[in-house]
């Protein structure tokens, strides 16, 4: 019996084909937001889908975050201890109030607690996208994928100097096609949502119910 792969490919190769057309990407190149307007645009787009924004500083954010969690009654936050943000959090986390939980073991040994035991997850971002109001995440061994997925609240740090006009421009500026892509790269543009019941918007159907963005100046 001929192999499925070979049969499919040989049928495709037998078809008449013309030259591949070129693509005019100028519409992607032309999209531009002045740098000073990008953050406002990103906020507007993300707030329209219920993301929450707070302004803090690069120096202060762990303390600010702690205060915010206490104020909002969020009792615990999961973080990647190997990441830069995770190290900062571990070192500067005040005593008492919200508990910082290190994501330092494989998920498999940890699922029960992750699904039911922590209330928030912290991630950094590679930056943001003004056009669509999106955060770019590259999870890694130090900052695992589930941090932005499983806990009911996702807290993301955003450096306001790392804002791109569009996804396409970000991808090119960061040279994605020339680097080894991570196992899982993500754009996150709000909390989990659905309109599957009568086109009525509801948040937190499977992923985080809240997305809190800390702008670190």
């Amino acid at each position: 019996m001929p192999d499925a792969r070979d049969s499919i490919l040989s049928r495709l190769r037998a078809a008449p084909r013309g030259p591949a057309p070129g693509s005019d990407f100028s519409v992607m190149e032309d999209r531009f937001f002045p740098p000073e307007e990008r953050l406002a645009r990103l906020r507007k787009m993300m707030e329209a889908v219920s993301a929450e924004f707070f302004e803090t500083t690069k120096a202060d954010w762990p303390r600010f975050l702690h205060g915010l969690l206490v104020q909002q009654g969020i009792g615990s936050i999961l973080y990647g201890p190997g990441s830069e943000a995770g190290q900062r959090l571990a070192e500067e986390w005040p005593e008492g109030g919200a508990r910082a939980v290190a994501y330092d073991r494989p998920m498999d040994s940890f699922k029960e607690e992750m699904f039911n035991g922590v209330e928030a997850g912290l991630t950094s971002t590679l930056g943001g996208i003004a056009e669509t109001g999106s955060l770019i995440l590259w999870p890694s061994a130090d900052e695992p994928r589930a941090l932005s997925l499983v806990p009911p609240v996702h807290v993301a740090l955003l450096d306001p100097d790392k804002l791109h006009n569009t996804f396409w421009q970000a991808m090119r500026a960061l040279g994605w096609s020339q680097t080894q892509m991570p196992a899982n790269a993500l754009l996150v543009s709000g909390p989990s949502k659905t309109t599957d019941i009568e086109q009525t918007l509801a948040y937190g159907v499977h992923g985080p119910k809240r997305l809190i963005v800390l702008i670190t100046r």
């Binding site: 669509t132 109001g133 061994a141 754009l187 309109t195 992923g207």
Partner: peptide, 24 residues
Amino acid sequence: ATGQPITTYVNMITSPRRPGEKDG
């Protein structure tokens, strides 16, 4: 599709869990 500028998640998968990674 739904009149959204983008979906909440764009999920780009390039490999299974890599050595040292804790999930995936």
